[in-house]
Design a protein around this nucleic acid. Sequence first.
DNA 1: GTCTATACAAAGATAGAC
DNA 2: GTCTATCTTTGTATAGAC
Lengths: 201, 201
Amino acid sequence: MPKVSVISDTGTRERILDIAQRLIQLSGYSAISYADIARELGVRKASIHYHFPSKADLGLAVIERYEKMFEGVMTDTSSNRAYSGRDMVDVYFSPYLELANDPDLICLCGALAGELSALPRAMQTLLKRFFSFHQKWLTQVLTAGLQKGEFKLPSSPEKYARMIIGLLQGALLVKRATGDGDQVHDAVRIIRLQLAPAGGA
Amino acid sequence: MPKVSVISDTGTRERILDIAQRLIQLSGYSAISYADIARELGVRKASIHYHFPSKADLGLAVIERYEKMFEGVMTDTSSNRAYSGRDMVDVYFSPYLELANDPDLICLCGALAGELSALPRAMQTLLKRFFSFHQKWLTQVLTAGLQKGEFKLPSSPEKYARMIIGLLQGALLVKRATGDGDQVHDAVRIIRLQLAPAGGA
DNA sequence: GTCTATACAAAGATAGAC
DNA sequence: GTCTATCTTTGTATAGAC
């Protein structure tokens, strides 16, 4: 008989990934160790190695999960006919705005991008995929909105999509260093304004 | 009699700082070691410790020098009456554009900001100073240009200054991860366009 | 699946000779 | 100011008991 539990005891593997992800968002991949994760989880280092034999395995799994979460939401959003282009970019902004509410967190992939050449090759590859996927998705959304006369862009959709990603990543990075909680919100405001200026499209 | 040499044998201390800075820009502070620097310089680890007893000392000296270089140029620029506001922001862009030409480099302080909580307190403090100084300087330049009718801004000078910094840092970060050499140049183009739109000020 | 124990290399750092 | 030698701690990783 299958067990039914109210407590969603998410399983050790997932909890390791949760902790590792958060620690990387705080300090980067190079700075964290099995000891850090073991301490926080309340187990021994060897237990982490059982689930993720090498640190590269762990890092890879963290990115993979993060990426899937993002991509799932994005794909669902862009295939939903009920959404306007404006709605879609707003959905895209939401995780960044959420990260902005924590003074100590930045995007996982932003943190990793800062120490790129210290990462295992496989992680570098996934990281590149992350940004490429986002750029392709945003370009699509912007292009569609542009054709419907919903947006006004100061450059090509490709370039503007790329700028949005850079701006969001950079805003998170700098807001944490300066402790300025409004940085990301204001960045989003400026993009929104530029996409649909008061003058009308 | 003082020696005169054509070869500017900059001294071991400076060469250590050069190497350390470059390595941090490539891989971050946590990822580099005395062994890495010693190998590249062709000396033993102990020699590095002679010049910088602890890694925190070294990291601090690297930021300090980087910061002074930036601040020197910025102060000179903003106190030069011959420059227009446009000239001044162009001067500000130039080091970022130079970094953009190397596919593997990002801003030292961008790299460090990505691993903030792994850094010694003193480094965190200097890092915050770096971004604060830049924001103050840019705000000044934008405010002056605005009053002279040279610029048009979509938000307050403070907020727009902050956005510019975030965008430049993020553009460097993402350009390296994706290998897209145009990212920074296009970001600069978009800012320039927004500062002085075709419609005239 | 988690534990103890341990191996092994690397990292940061110091002492003392030259 | 740089070297050799050494110390200590930490980090990654594995073996084997429970």
